[in-house]
Simulated assay, not measured.
Amino acid sequence: MILVHIEKYKKVTDVAREMNMKQPSVTFHMKSLEEELGTVLFESKRGRMVLTEAGQALYPYALKITGLAAEAKKVVQDYTLLDKGTLRIGADCGTSTFPLPQLITAFTKRHTGIQLQVIVTPTQTIRTLLSDREIDVALYHAKVQQLSDEELTTTQSIFDDEIVVIFGANHRFANLQHLEPQLIAMEFFIQHAEGSFVKQFTHEWSNNNNIHLWERIQLDSPEAIKISVQAGHHITFFPKRSVQQELELGVLKCLPIPNDTTAMIKSVIAFQHDPTQHSLRNEFVEFARNYTL
């Protein structure tokens, strides 16, 4: 504010230099402020510009206004620089195990002032939430051939994966090199949540192979599914990269799904095509696309 700078520098030329303005412009703003308030705020004494009594009375308020303006500017800049803000992320059950934890951990290390709100729910629900703009970005699994049906301007692949049969280290499948559909049909099968990508995939596979799966359990939690399979009495289908840690530890094993040419899948990141969306969403999308998994 002009009044604050006049009190600090006492010369119009110095104020003009500080505010990167021409001297006549500073003088114009001084007179405009006096006209607006209907009183004299500035007076010249011995070659210096000082505040009148009215100007001195206004000065504390001018300081507060200037401070609030600077604070407001910083708040807006923090959002622009991604130091603040909230990002709403939705992930289906498969991607909530991988790659979501890796992505959000690395992203929040880079942008320490932001907040992430994460919703984990079946694939169909995630896509509905994105369509209804209740989340900013979605992560879910999709078949390779399904990507051509998506709007490519809003859906992008971030890594490849495949659906495999998983089972415990002591399961009888652990001694086999490959499986047949009939063998899978003879085992207790854990089914994934209603509306999930893996459940839809499983039903399509069983229908294509004329197999009736022995579905004794349905679980909504991917972690609960993995723990149950580790016990050794059940099998299920699962994205391979989502059980990579368990495979490396040897507590789970896997084999390719027999008689299937669609087991190769993609993990995709999707968002509404909206140029007015905040930069935090755009930054996360770009980060996910370039993150080395």
Rank of each mutant, 00 (worst) to 15 (best):
I65P: 03
I65D: 12
I65V: 15
I65L: 14
G67D: 07
G67P: 00
L68N: 14
L68Y: 14
A69G: 13
A69Q: 15
A70C: 11
E71Y: 15
A72N: 15
K73A: 15
K73W: 13
K74H: 07
K74N: 09
K74C: 05
V75N: 13
V76Q: 13
V76Y: 13
V76M: 12
V76C: 11
Q77K: 13
Q77F: 13
D78F: 09
Y79N: 06
Y79T: 07
Y79I: 09
Y79E: 11
L81M: 11
L81T: 10
L82M: 07
D83F: 13
D83Y: 15
D83G: 14
K84N: 14
K84R: 15
K84Y: 14
G85Y: 02
G85L: 01
G85C: 06
L87Y: 00
L87C: 02
L87T: 01
R88W: 07
I89G: 00
G90K: 09
A91I: 01
D92I: 00
D92F: 00
C93E: 06
G94F: 05
G94R: 04
G94P: 05
G94V: 06
G94T: 08
T95F: 00
T95M: 01
T97I: 08
T97F: 03
F98C: 05
F98P: 01
F98K: 02
P99H: 00
L100A: 02
P101G: 01
P101A: 01
P101C: 00
P101D: 01
P101H: 02
Q102A: 10
L103C: 02
I104L: 03
T105F: 09
T105D: 11
T105W: 06
A106R: 00
F107G: 03
F107Y: 04
K109S: 12
K109E: 11
R110P: 05
R110W: 08
H111F: 12
H111K: 08
H111T: 06
G113E: 11
G113S: 12
G113N: 13
I114M: 06
I114A: 06
I114Q: 04
L116K: 09
L116N: 10
Q117I: 14
Q117T: 13
Q117A: 12
Q117Y: 12
V118E: 03
V118I: 13
I119L: 07
I119E: 04
I119Y: 03
I119C: 04
I119Q: 03
I119H: 05
T123R: 09
T123G: 08
T125L: 10
T125C: 08
I126Y: 06
I126C: 09
R127E: 10
R127T: 09
T128A: 13
T128L: 13
T128E: 14
L129F: 02
L130G: 11
S131H: 08
D132Y: 11
D132K: 13
D132R: 12
R133N: 14
R133H: 15
E134K: 15
I135P: 03
I135M: 03
I135K: 00
D136V: 06
V137T: 07
V137E: 07
V137K: 04
V137M: 07
A138R: 03
L139I: 12
